[in-house]
């Protein structure tokens, strides 16, 4: 169905389009119609049931001329199609040219493979050098680590041995079953008093029952204050 462009023109103008200048629309607009006639499976309409179409009258001279033209056209087109078919056969996969082409391709592929192998060899050489270098570096690092580890072990052993030695030194003064009586006696003889008092100036007075007057002023100790006192 054909519809004049004027019918849609106002809508486009509404959208702010200058149809003729912006879109360059052709003056005829084609609208598709999905069903033009009744579906094929429906019977003849009742009103058309007894209508007999008139036998078309074909002009005889026109008929023979059209037949001749049609025959000519068909013959020529058949020949043209045949030409294209032949040409396609020549250029298609099984033709001589295509076989030659595939052969060339094969040769090209072989050449490419050779070149690729050469490149691979060069790259392999470079890679080997790089890998040996890395290996050397790694070896050195590992060696250094082993040495460091051994040194640390040695140090720790030394330390432990030192501790053992010190403990052995100190073991002489341990209180054991043999000398416990003596230690008790010593403790009884010299009691230790941990109590102390502090005056406002921070002087320490040792002992539980020490009076401020008991300590001579030149022997007074002061509390050591650590950190900030606010």
């Amino acid at each position: 169905m054909l519809r004049s462009v004027n019918a849609i023109y106002p809508n486009l103008q509404y959208l702010g389009l200058q149809v003729w200048n912006d879109l360059k629309l052709s003056p005829v607009c084609i609208q598709c119609v999905r069903w033009k006639r009744k579906p094929r499976w429906l019977p003849v309409a009742k009103s058309k049931l007894f209508r007999i179409p008139e036998r078309p009258k074909i002009d005889e001279s026109e008929d023979i001329e059209l037949k001749r033209l049609h025959d000519r056209y068909r013959t020529e087109m058949r020949s043209v199609r045949n030409y294209f078919r032949q040409e396609f056969k020549e250029t298609s996969a099984n033709s001589l040219a295509a076989l030659q082409g595939s052969k060339d391709e094969e040769e090209e592929h072989l050449r490419c493979m050779k070149e690729n192998e050469e490149w691979n060899k060069q790259v392999a050489l470079l890679r080997e050098q790089r890998l040996t270098k890395i290996q050397e570096a790694r070896k050195e690092i590992i060696l250094a680590k082993i040495i460091a580890f051994e040194e640390r072990e040695k140090e720790q052993l030394e330390k432990a041995e030192q501790m053992v030695r010190e403990e052995k030194e100190r073991a002489k003064f341990y209180i054991t079953a043999d000398n416990i009586d003596k230690a008790i006696e010593d403790a009884l003889i010299s009691p230790v008093d941990h109590n102390y008092a502090i005056d406002l100036e921070g002087h320490i007075f040792q002992g539980h029952k020490t009076k401020p007057t008991d300590v001579p002023p030149d022997k007074l100790e002061k509390v050591q204050v650590q950190g900030l006192v606010s």
């Binding site: 001279s61 026109e62 023979i64 001749r68 000519r72």
Partner: peptide, 14 residues
């Protein structure tokens, strides 16, 4: 002969 173009018309009056 197969004449070029549309050939010789059978109904020249057309």
């Amino acid at each position: 002969m197969f004449e070029p173009g549309i050939g010789t018309p059978r109904s020249p009056e057309l």
